[in-house]
Design a protein around this nucleic acid. Structure first.
Length: 546
DNA sequence: GACGGCTCCAAA
DNA sequence: AACTTTTGGAGCCGTC
């Protein structure tokens, strides 16, 4: 059974459909009765159909109402418009409309709003979810069903994590900052430790007025002092010897900490002992989640993870999928040799044991190079050896690269399609292939084609890994609920989850995480004997997880 | 003062 | 260590 949720002038309209999509009944509830009504009807385990999980679900969570299943029409729409499996349908062919716009209420509410921001027209008001749902049902082939339900389940998980939040001890974070930077400075001033390092830098470069935050002036000062560098990036500075290097690298590290995760971050992102990650499911073309706002949920640096501490009587169960992307590649390609290399635990060690390359480091470099499309350096040189040992896996990524170089679409295992290159790209290709095109133009076009090929090459692996992660989380979410709801998903990071749980449930929580990973492998790859081993740590502090 | 481009860095 | 993928944000700086 499905219940389609829609705003109306008198409240919220709930339209019930049976499993064939036929109309069963309709009712209208006031906004204030909405969450109670959802709670009541959740007992019959419907699939809630709504425009945006992000729009509808937070108010339910506020009211203490969890739903088991939903259809997020906007996310499913995006998949249907891009999947190679639906290109002939009217969903894919329809001109862009309000469903293709970002949700009206997604941005941080009313920050910077002024008197002049009169009630904007909300795209959401023009949406007809019932009509859209029926259209999507008609368009979606069975082969896309798993991806569509995983995507919607992911949206529920994202909203729940945002609601619950990751335990974050502000006073621990403050102590950590004070220890590294010195006391919190007044507005407009640098922390003491950074100011001292800035003085050292100016002295070492004999540049008394230098602002080390200005990359341009810093580069000129470095070159004037005789350093042979082309940029001020960390990796280039590290290979140069000069008295300025040590204070400069420390300055850059502290400046990053201060501006990205300093006291200002703490003030704006931690409330009531929780950090509330603002995820955007489907926000990356590959299907990975993105994050929104200054919270930086997907780039929480290791430097500050010490402030993530379980509540009294609780622990954090932290699990990450080891070498996820190469294993995904092995399984997608049905490359028995590579699957076998990972069967004992460490895939890279398995590759070395097979004799393909000499060292674990080389195995890792070669694998990453194959998935990213490296052509140069040690990584590029190692790929032929990898191709001899694992022709199936390498054929898959090379094939995806060729498709992209032709400007065509590739697909993940579950059917998420890659975007097509833009007009500029096509124009460059046709200009370069025209009679009398300059060699410079031809080279630019080839570079653009190769670049798009690297993107599609990586898309199939990164995107399928994201699908595995969605299935993992969707399954885990159900298992944690079955444990009574006390263990809660508190964080997600591409191939890693953090569950905050009462200490006495730590072991069953860890089991649930492992079982969910097995189930995710089965959902994607059936009975193929591919393992996705996890590293699981039960800790007080996130900093101790790895 | 707003805005876009640029550089740099964090995560996977 | 980068090379090679996907992201988001801060700060600087020139342009309007």
């Amino acid at each position: 059974m499905h219940i389609v949720v829609e705003s109306s002038s008198s409240g919220v309209t709930l339209t019930t459909l049976d499993d064939t999509g036929a109309f069963v009944g309709e009712s209208v509830v006031s906004e204030s009765d909405f969450s109670a009504e959802v709670a009541r009807r959740e007992a019959s385990r419907p699939r809630w159909v709504w425009s945006d999980t992000e729009h509808w679900y937070p108010r339910l969570l506020e009211a203490g109402v969890r739903v088991e299943r939903c259809v997020d029409l906007r996310l499913c729409r995006a998949i249907l418009r891009n999947s190679p499996l639906t290109q002939s349908t009217d969903v894919a062919a329809a001109p862009p409309d309000a469903w293709d716009e970002p949700p009206a209420d997604a941005a941080s509410p009313a920050v910077g709003a002024t008197l002049f921001d009169l009630e904007p027209a909300r795209p959401g008001d023009q949406l007809d979810p019932l009509r859209e749902f029926l259209r999507q049902r008609a368009a979606a082939p069975p082969a896309l069903a798993l991806l569509l339900s995983a995507e919607s389940a992911g949206a529920l998980v994202a909203a729940e994590i945002k609601h619950t939040g990751l335990p974050w001890r502000a006073e621990v974070h403050d102590e950590l900052l004070t220890r590294m930077l010195g006391p919190r400075p007044r507005v407009g001033e640098r922390p003491g430790r950074m100011e001292a390092l800035a003085r050292d830098i100016r002295a070492a470069l004999d540049a008394p007025e230098l602002n080390p935050d200005s990359a341009g002036t810093l580069l000129r000062a470095l070159q004037r002092a005789g350093l042979r560098v082309e940029s001020t990036s960390k990796w280039e500075l590290q290979r140069v010897e000069h008295p300025v290097i040590t204070p400069l690298l420390e300055y850059k590290s502290l400046a990053r900490l201060y501006s990205a995760n300093g006291w200002h971050w703490l003030d704006t992102n931690v409330r009531d002992g929780r950090f509330h990650p603002d995820y955007v499911p489907g926000g990356v073309v590959t299907g990975r989640w993105a994050s929104r706002g200054g919270g930086g949920a997907l780039q929480l640096p290791k430097q500050v993870r010490g402030a993530v501490l379980a509540d009294p009587g609780h622990v954090l169960v932290v699990a990450d999928a080891s070498q996820l992307e190469p294993r995904i590649l092995a399984a997608m390609a049905r490359d028995r040799a590579m699957v076998e290399a990972g069967a004992q635990g460490d895939l890279y060690a398995g590759i070395v044991a097979s004799g393909a390359v000499a060292t674990r480091e080389q195995a890792k470099l070669a694998m990453l190079g194959a998935m990213y499309g490296a052509t140069q350096g040690e990584s590029g040189r190692l790929i032929p050896a990898l191709a001899r040992a694992y022709p199936g896996a390498i054929r898959l990524v090379e094939g995806a690269a060729r498709v992209g170089e032709r400007g065509e679409r590739v697909s993940t295992l579950l059917g998420r399609g890659s975007p097509l290159p833009g007009e500029d790209w096509h124009e460059l290709q046709s200009l370069a292939s025209a009679e009398g095109a300059s060699t410079a133009l031809q080279e630019r076009a080839r570079a653009a084609a190769r670049s798009w090929g690297r993107f599609t090459r990586n898309f199939v692996v990164q995107g399928t890994a994201a699908e595995w992660a969605l299935c993992w989380m969707a399954t885990l979410r159900q298992k944690l609920h079955a444990l009574g709801g006390a263990p809660q998903l508190a964080f997600f990071l591409h191939d890693e989850v953090v569950v905050h749980t009462p200490s006495e449930l730590a072991d069953v929580t860890a089991d649930a995480i492992r079982e969910a990973a097995v189930e995710a492998g089965r959902l994607l790859f059936g009975e193929l004997p591919i393992r996705f081993p996890l590293t699981v740590a039960t800790v007080q502090s996130y900093a101790d997880a790895k």
